[in-house]
Design a binder for these strands. Structure first.
Lengths: 203, 203
DNA sequence: GGGTTTCTGCATCGATCGATGCAGAAGAGG
DNA sequence: CCTCTTCTGCATCGATCGATGCAGAAACCC
């Protein structure tokens, strides 16, 4: 069994780099949201025509889905790494620090794509909204599972509620994202996060 | 000087109730956001024609502005009331409880209009986005001023930073709003808020 | 009831929305 | 070089976007 053998297609090869185009699209979705990002703006930033976009990615919703995957594995990868921290407090600290870093990058959009990408939408964009609801729920569930493990390991006290702790950290992360989208600076948010985790765990 | 004398206009009187129409528009904006709410959906929910909407409110952006004012004085009025609580902890508790109640109403949209109304938008809706940025900043500034007073009164310890405390409470409020928009239930959010304020103040 | 003023229903505006069709350009395989 | 496959540039699709013009309907003042 060949392992992901690159099948070389006949005919004219693609004239642009798919990864780079997707990155450009990601930045547009991140900054303007799913509904606010028009095809004209997207393809303009991607440097390709609408025909190439449809041939390569399918449609706007599929493009958004792939941009979100790229976001998860790129700017939002701090989450997966944070879960490897040895202690629950370390996990929470890393999550909030990563959130702050990603939502307040000096270059690039402020805020979190998973939050501001499609928080409230019209009927036409309900699929994108549901996609982000599932994305956020995935993140929460993963965090909660990590805190459940912490309770089992004795890292969190037996009376700590993983659900509650996960909701707490998640709420702080979302709150940081919204404030970052409003222009609040990195240092101020980090000071707040430090204080929020000084009393640990929340019970 | 007459005090707001109701000037009776000549001609055909308006055939609908302005307050009720604005309430309907508010609910649409709340649920679908500024960009997601089309004029057709808005006027349909308001029960009036586009001509009546434009004659009465101006345009979509002005309608949104008035809906936001109504939101501030209605569903979001808990904020102003919370500031009257005698202690800083009471203020924070009331803010979070009010946020949870408003963002998880059994009937009506979930979440907070000020957060999900226009968090990220395209260029065409940047005015609405800026309006909500200012709205959130207003709320934060008011809360911070209240905590500054609490420090002066000795209600908060001298080493407490009103800026940090206000950011903390605000972040939790936004986080609650995002989770409510994702469908998280009222009780679960209230348990989280209770735990978050058990260690008080954050320093 | 006449005159006046305002509101409303309908049609429609130009612009933009997301999405396609098509013909020619471009490059790989033979 | 020829053929074949794929990609790209351009034009354009129907639908919907926010926003208006206009004429008739309706209700107030006198």
């Amino acid at each position: 069994m060949k392992t992901e053998q690159q099948r070389r297609p006949a005919g004219r090869p693609r004239g642009f780099d798919v990864d780079e185009a997707l990155e450009r699209a990601l930045l547009v979705f991140w900054e303007q949201g799913y509904e606010g990002a028009s095809l004209a703006t997207l393809t303009g930033a991607m440097g390709i025509s609408t025909a190439s976009m449809y041939a390569t990615f399918g449609n706007k919703e599929a493009l958004f889905r792939k941009a979100l995957e790229r976001y998860t594995e790129g700017p939002s990868a701090y989450l997966a790494r944070a879960l490897d921290e040895p202690t629950a407090l370390g996990v929470a600290t890393a999550i909030l620090a990563g959130t702050i870093r990603t939502t307040t990058r000096p270059t690039g959009p402020n805020g979190c794509l998973g939050v501001q990408g499609a928080l409230a939408t019209g009927d036409a964009s309900s699929e994108a909204r549901d996609l982000l609801v599932a994305w956020r729920d995935d993140g929460y569930t993963t965090i909660r599972a990590r805190f459940e493990r912490a309770v089992d390991e004795g890292d969190l006290p037996p009376d700590a509620d993983p659900t509650l702790v996960a909701r707490y950290v998640t709420a702080l992360g979302y709150g940081i994202a919204v404030q970052a989208a409003s222009g609040v600076g990195r240092d101020e948010l980090q000071d707040m996060a430090d204080a929020a985790l000084r009393a640990w765990p929340p019970v």
